[in-house]
Design a protein around this nucleic acid. Structure first.
Lengths: 98, 98
DNA sequence: AATAAACATGAAAAATATTTCATATATAAA
DNA sequence: TTTATATATGAAATATTTTTCATGTTTATT
């Protein structure tokens, strides 16, 4: 499997990413974006039935960490998964029998 | 990539796992176990240069969550990765250019 | 210009996690 | 049976996250 010792710097980065996606709300958002590619804040709030402010905070967290990007269109903001690996990771977890 | 909507229960579980491995110390431990298969607490402490108590706590956390198992041999306890998927996940993260 | 819609943001409150320290337990060795 | 080694555990101290609430900003519409 993983035959290499990961150096500290990379370890921190990887941990940082995993920790970020390892949260129910954030994971749910990513899961939707894995299907819809691009969604507005409102669309996310409605599909997941979550408060706007809460969603915004989480989206921002993920944007800051480079996991998502967003583009403005009118008054809406559309978010997208920027970090491919994140999709791979959750694709992997999706398949596993927990 | 991930074409399916993950149901809430599974989402929670996956998030739980990801959050658990998304910590520098725990990830470092798993990384070593991915190479060494089986290590005692002492070996882990020494290789990573971390306090015994801290390592024990983290090992226990991961054991409780089903990520690791351990077997007693004399006064030592040998820990092993129990959840295959975790190795896949960090194998994936290891390769990615962060 | 006033209003509404979509979203962001900041601060406080609440919840959780992490680390440390002291001590307990179990096994082995002398 | 005393001592040493390996590890676990519990509680307190810290630190970090998460959520909520109130409000701010931006753009579009009337």
């Amino acid at each position: 499997m993983t035959a290499e010792i990961i150096n500290n710097e990379k370890l921190e980065k990887v941990a940082f990413i995993l920790k970020t996606i390892g949260h129910p709300v954030r994971l749910a958002i990513i899961n939707r974006l894995a299907i819809n590619e691009q969604m507005s804040v409102n669309e996310i709030c409605e599909t997941l039935d979550l408060e706007q402010s809460l969603v915004s905070h989480h989206l921002n967290t993920m944007k800051l960490k480079g996991i998502l990007t967003c583009s403005k269109q009118g008054t809406s903001r559309y978010y997208t998964v920027a970090l491919e690996e994140v999709l791979t990771v959750i694709g992997c977890m999706e398949k596993c029998k927990l």
